[in-house]
Design a protein around this nucleic acid. Structure first.
Lengths: 143, 143
DNA sequence: GCGCATCATGAAAGTGATTTTCACTAACAT
DNA sequence: ATGTTAGTGAAAATCACTTTCATGATGCGC
């Protein structure tokens, strides 16, 4: 899984005529082995422990590159920070966001996806991506 | 329709012990007679033509107030700006966002809403709100 | 109507999260 | 090994709000 994503990223880098660097590999490894939905700052802080020399800007630029290469997805959950989600081959999931504790739970629902495509078709739209977030209280927070 | 929303807002203002001001009325009128999904800046610029004395901060605070009163809804479409959507009585709609020309089209789909509730229930979640956006190219932009 | 406790406003300063700049390095094709 | 081009890190600049503060309205009580 990690291996596959590393390959996808490296292929992308090569295809775009970009360079493979030590920093990118370190950041990629850290990203792949971290929680989903990490913000730039969270990843930066995590990296800083072992690699205090890697700058915030590099993490920022590399994460953007991950998104471009298709192994990550930029997300906004209304907390003012952009988060980067992992993206699997052809996989897509949506989120349940707990407004109480901030927990983010993933789910997939084929039927909803199908309906979305129908809606799009009815409007002549060609869907590229979508975003579905359900905000509320998780089982633990709804006392 | 406009009348109803004005009343809702004024009632809210009164209930909260706030004051009715000339600026709020001007901004409310401009908001109600403008496109849906306006950003603070867009509304501010629009207002500035006839009311150059109204400050950005006032538009910002008033829009927040609209959202609190229930006649507007804050939205984020990934373009870095918060937009304010009109909200009708009990109504809810989702969006198709064209990444080509920026057009935003609204739609409603009862079945999807039902499925969302089922997903939430399956996870013990209590849904408060949701956000569903389909990004792609509109009929005009998919050449 | 008038006083005045509050709330509101506008200009400007402050914030927080990126995003860009720039001088310096590192990759990699030759 | 070297030249060309992309990458890096620190710091400065942006951007989109958000708050502060001195000044100006509101509107209830008399």
């Amino acid at each position: 899984m990690k291996r596959v994503k590393k390959k996808i990223f490296h292929d992308y880098i090569a295809r775009q005529g970009l360079k493979s660097t030590r920093q990118r590999d370190i950041i990629l490894e850290a990203f792949l082995s971290s929680d989903r939905h990490l913000s730039i700052e969270e990843l930066y802080l995590k990296l800083r422990v072992k690699h205090p020399n890697i700058g915030y800007a590099t993490v920022y630029r590399t994460l953007k590159l991950f998104a471009e290469s298709g192994i990550a997805r930029e997300m906004q959950f209304g907390d003012g920070q952009t988060r980067y989600d992992h993206v699997g081959e052809g996989e897509h999931h949506d989120h349940l966001v707990c407004t109480g504790c901030g927990a983010i739970i993933e789910f997939e629902n084929e039927t909803i996806e199908t309906l979305q495509n129908e809606v799009a078709a009815a409007h002549g739209f060609l869907i590229k991506t979508h975003k579905l977030e359900l905000y509320g209280l998780c089982a633990r927070c709804r006392g």
